[in-house]
Computed example of a mutant assay.
Amino acid sequence: MKLIFTGKTKDVYSLEDGNYLLQFKDDVTGEDGVFDPGANTVGLKIEGAGRAGLRMTKYFFDILQAEGIPTHYIGADIEKATMTVRPAAVFGNGLEVICRYRAVGSFLRRYGMYAKEGQPLDAFVEVTLKDDERQDPPISEDALHMLGILSADEYKVLKALTQQIAGIVKSVLEKKGIDLYDIKFEFGRVGENKEIILIDEISGGNMRAYKDGKYIEPLQLEKLILND
């Protein structure tokens, strides 16, 4: 097992069989000790966050697998906080794709002249570059195509998958009386036909969720979803 990448919330190892092992950490993104799924820095450490994130990721990847949605997921070891995945090539140096149902976070900071906090959004899809130096700038479909990061057809697939997967997560949360405000995904290409698949994770650290108008911390969200 060889360490090939050290991330903010996970480390990535290559395995002898060609697959990858993701080691989930207790670090979460945020600023000044406050959790923020849209932040590009580690803001704090929450004990148990790694295992909680993996439990929820496994739960949702199992649901997606049953729905026939392509992902990189192979298996997970909750105790070791590790997940085995298929290797996938990221778009460019990495993209984050956000599906927004409410105007909060960076969306509100950018568009606050027109948007009100918590204003409903119709599964708005936003793509940002993974670029810490430039604060993960948003990028349009045209720019993605012109810069050779992905094609116009690939963007359509990316957007459709984002809305489909976010809709599934939103539906699961609604059954628990929880409102999904936004969720962040990552995608990659696999195989000779360069199929687009979901990669990374689906956890409380990647979304904003509220219950009775109050924000739910990632660890609490995992308990509400999995322990009922």
Rank of each mutant, 00 (worst) to 15 (best):
P138H: 14
R109V: 03
G43I: 08
A115T: 07
L54N: 00
I197H: 02
A76M: 13
E79L: 02
T82Q: 09
V12H: 00
L15R: 09
G118C: 10
E67Y: 07
M83L: 08
G105V: 06
M113L: 10
T6G: 09
K8L: 07
F124M: 15
K159Y: 02
I216L: 15
I183S: 11
G75K: 15
A81E: 09
I98P: 04
P70N: 02
P137F: 14
V157Y: 03
Y114I: 09
P120D: 13
K170E: 15
N40Y: 12
Y181Q: 12
R86E: 12
D228H: 01
V104M: 09
T29P: 01
K194P: 02
L219V: 00
G53D: 10
G213E: 07
E195W: 04
I168T: 07
D212K: 00
A103F: 02
Q65C: 11
D200R: 06
V125Q: 08
D36N: 15
Y20I: 13
V34M: 09
G43Y: 03
G204Q: 12
N40L: 08
E67T: 06
P70S: 03
R134Y: 14
G148K: 04
K8Q: 12
F91R: 01
V28K: 00
Y111H: 15
R110H: 13
D122W: 08
E79M: 08
R102I: 10
E126A: 14
S14F: 00
Q163C: 12
T162M: 08
D200S: 15
K130F: 09
E174K: 14
Y73K: 05
F185A: 13
E31T: 06
H145I: 05
G112S: 10
D142G: 03
M1A: 07
K223C: 13
S203E: 03
L173T: 15
K25D: 10
A89R: 10
D136C: 10
L64V: 09
I149A: 07
G48S: 08
C99T: 15
E16Q: 05
I149G: 00
T29Q: 05
E154A: 03
L15C: 10
S106H: 11
L54Q: 00
N227Y: 11
T128Y: 02
Q135C: 11
I46K: 08
L95M: 04
G94F: 02
L121S: 07
T71S: 15
L54K: 00
P137A: 14
E96W: 01
Y59D: 12
G75I: 09
I78S: 01
Q119G: 03
P137M: 14
L224D: 15
G167H: 11
